[in-house]
Computed example of a mutant assay.
Amino acid sequence: MSARVHDCVGAFLVRGGRVLLGRRTADRELLAGAWDVFGGHVEAGESELDALTRELDEEVGIRPIRLRRLQTIEGAQPAPWRLHLYVVTDWQGEPCNRQPDEHDELRWCELDEAVRCLGAAHPAFERLLGEALAAAGA
């Protein structure tokens, strides 16, 4: 029997040629201490867009206005997962850390720093970060 795939959504929040990333707290069960995009699990009966809107509100207090779907990436560790990635270039609200138990730092990163932070997580992140910044006119 195959393991259930964890469907997740995530967003590159892009402004002024930089992308906002969050560092997961050291006590998180998954990806402790790793830099990450904002998002989370798609709940039963929820669309990708509904999940993304909910997660961005919960984590950083924004509501996406202008966004575009980039790509879905997949992995098998620590359990099978699928991440539907979006770029958000306009939103309501000002991003702030609404879940300090999940992220201990938020940082606006230029492309090279974002690639250093996320590049090891998946080989597609470098290309997708470039696409996200290009979509915002960076």
Rank of each mutant, 00 (worst) to 15 (best):
A138T: 14
D101Y: 01
A79Y: 11
Q99I: 07
L118S: 02
L106E: 00
H122V: 07
L30E: 13
Q99C: 02
A32G: 12
D57M: 08
A121T: 12
P78Q: 05
C96G: 05
L21G: 03
G40Y: 10
V37R: 09
E48K: 15
P100T: 04
E102W: 15
G93I: 04
A26N: 12
V115C: 14
Q99W: 02
A124Y: 12
A32E: 12
R116H: 15
I73D: 03
E48V: 01
R24G: 11
L133K: 07
L129P: 05
R116S: 12
G119A: 13
H84Y: 01
E43I: 15
G93R: 05
M1S: 14
Q71L: 08
E59D: 11
E29L: 10
R116T: 08
E29W: 09
L67Y: 12
G137Q: 06
G33P: 08
R24I: 07
R98D: 08
P78C: 02
D90A: 14
Q71R: 14
V37N: 13
E94Y: 02
A34R: 15
V42D: 06
R69D: 02
E126Y: 04
L70Q: 11
A120L: 04
L13T: 00
V42T: 11
G130L: 00
I62F: 15
L111Y: 11
W35G: 01
R23N: 04
E58C: 06
F38A: 03
V37A: 08
G119H: 14
S2V: 10
D112Q: 12
R15L: 06
L111V: 11
D101F: 02
P78F: 04
R24C: 10
D7M: 02
R82C: 00
R24M: 15
R15K: 15
S47N: 10
R68M: 10
D57N: 11
A79D: 02
A79K: 13
P95W: 09
E48T: 02
T25A: 14
D7K: 07
L111G: 00
A124E: 13
E55M: 00
L129I: 10
L13I: 08
D7R: 15
E94M: 01
W81K: 04
G40D: 05
D57E: 08
L30S: 15
T72M: 06
L118F: 03
A134E: 12
V5S: 15
D90K: 12
T25N: 07
E29G: 12
E46H: 12
G17K: 10
R63F: 05
L67P: 07
L83G: 04
G137D: 06
E43R: 15
T72K: 02
R24T: 11
G61H: 03
H6Y: 09
V14D: 00
T53H: 14
L83S: 13
E46V: 11
F38N: 05
S47P: 12
L128F: 09
L133R: 07
D7A: 05
G119R: 07
A136C: 15
A26W: 15
R68T: 14
L56H: 06
D36E: 12
F125V: 01
R68A: 12
D101M: 00
G61I: 01
H103G: 01
L70R: 09
D112Y: 07
R15Q: 14
